[in-house]
Amino acid sequence: MDVKDIIKPENLVYERTKNLTDKALSYCPGCGHGVVHRLTMEVLEELQITQDTIGVASVGCSVLAYEFMNIDMTQAPHGRATAAATGIKRCWPDKYVFTYQGDGDLAAIGTAETIHSCNRGENFTVIFINNGIYGMTGGQMAPTTLPGMKSSTTPYGREVELMGNPIKMTELVAQLPGTYYVTRQSVHTPANVRKAKKAIRIAFENQKLNKGLSFVEIVSNCNSGWKMTPVDSNIWMEENMFPFYPLGDIKVNGELVTK
């Protein structure tokens, strides 16, 4: 039997979502961005809301997200994605709106916009990729860089006394009355990918409820920035990032999860 004989519609078990373009990803091999792009786009397709969705790209490695996501998108200045999303959602309350931001964008330069959008209870979804580093500019210290962690601007490791502490933005926004769903996920194993997709799906479904902002942090690797192989970076992430940024739901249906 030739391979061509099995390529038939009835044998199809998986297909790339039409919400991704054919363009080759600009991300480094091993990076989590591609997986989160796919999950987000699959969710839109499965919920059949692509035609009603407007995305907001930010500044960082995912600045070109609109090249890979086959949906209507705008590209916001550094840190301002949630402000732009506020402008869209307020004018189009029936549309599904989301931002896609990294930790430098969301938790450093965009702190004010993030906190106030969350606190106002803007009814959109935030996808927040936290890899503890500025990837696109070449691996500088981020607001989320762990104590002792090396980067190009902390070549001897982050010294908390001099450089301050890493910020847990997700725990912080969970405290605000305007957030309805706050969760932290990862995409480094098939099981985690499935959990992350479920979280992203909830975050979009929540927009129908009109009860506030849904915030999904994905703790991700940055093998290039961390100067590791993809496999080593995932192990390092499990051993170092997850203890500081524990995975799981932090706020569900507007209530903080007690552990």
Partner: peptide
């Protein structure tokens, strides 16, 4: 009423995009 002039102009940017 935005939290800053920066947020306000970026809300304009978002709305204008549509």
């Amino acid at each position: 009423q935005a939290e800053s002039e920066i947020a306000a102009i970026n809300m304009v940017y978002g709305a204008a995009s549509t």
